[in-house]
């Protein structure tokens, strides 16, 4: 069982440990597989499908697929790039993402992903859905306009905070993040120090009154493109 796993990603030999997912093995090898719902501290759920790779000819979500010996994995191919672009595009048009005045701008994983993929404008028509803003909590604001249904908050609340503040409710296009069902955030036991307040990849769950405190040029993705921290681990 301790024998190492050997696989290739885009032709590059990668060594993985038992129990690692493809994404974990790739991260350790300095190969970035784009992702949005995945978070290192949370159980993976393979929801957003941005991390889709081709494993032995079949599409698989790298965040949940265990690494296995002999796998031949494709990650950086024109077809997969287009597939990921399409998913990111759909996320933009299915919400109301106004980066120009969003306080998450520069620190937003969705925006950073769009920059990484060279998306300057969506190819699909904007849906302009009607979404609510829940500002009832004294320290946290929930702006559903910017939610991408990654469910990180759902998992963080349950797995890290030991609470059950968020749940996914509804189906299909009408699916949304519920707060204790249909409550307001102020009616829950959520606190500003909860991990669920930290894991949102976009500007949906934000801490109040600190927006725009980081100057342009000093924000996370002003300094480096998303994924470059992982790529820095690459061996020559």
């Amino acid at each position: 069982m301790n024998k190492s796993i050997h696989l290739t990603i885009d032709g590059k030999p990668v060594e993985a440990k038992h129990g690692q997912t493809i994404m974990q093995a790739a991260d350790a090898a300095g190969i970035y597989i784009p992702r949005l719902c995945s978070h290192p501290d949370l159980r993976p759920i393979g929801s957003c499908r941005v991390c889709t790779v081709i494993v032995d000819g079949r599409p698989q979500a790298a965040c949940v697929k265990p690494a296995m010996d002999g796998m031949v994995i494709e990650n950086d191919t024109p077809e997969l790039l287009q597939h990921r672009r399409n998913i990111i595009d759909m996320m933009f048009v299915e919400g109301n993402h106004f980066c120009m005045f969003c306080e998450k701008s520069g620190n937003c994983e969705l925006q950073a992903m769009a920059y990484r993929f060279g998306i300057t404008a969506p190819q699909y028509p904007f849906q302009f859905p009607e979404k609510a803003v829940d500002a009832s909590h004294p320290d946290i604001m929930l702006d559903h306009n910017r939610c991408i249904m990654c469910a990180r908050c759902v998992r963080a609340s349950q797995e890290l905070d030991g609470k059950n503040v968020f749940q996914a409710i509804g189906r299909g296009f009408h699916r949304k993040i519920g707060v204790d069902g249909e409550k307001a955030l102020a009616d829950t036991d959520m606190a500003v120090g909860d991990r669920s307040a930290d894991v949102c990849p976009v500007g949906c769950i934000i801490k109040k009154r600190i927006g725009f405190r980081t100057a342009i040029g000093r924000r996370l993705y002003d300094r480096q493109p998303i994924g470059s921290d992982i790529e820095a681990n690459a061996t020559p």
Binding site: M100, F101, E103, V133, M141, K208, G211, F212
Partner: peptide, 14 residues
């Protein structure tokens, strides 16, 4: 209306 106040200086300049 409905937007948080700290967003307004960035939003309204548009």
């Amino acid at each position: 209306q409905g937007r948080p106040y700290w967003e307004v200086p960035v939003l309204v300049q548009r």
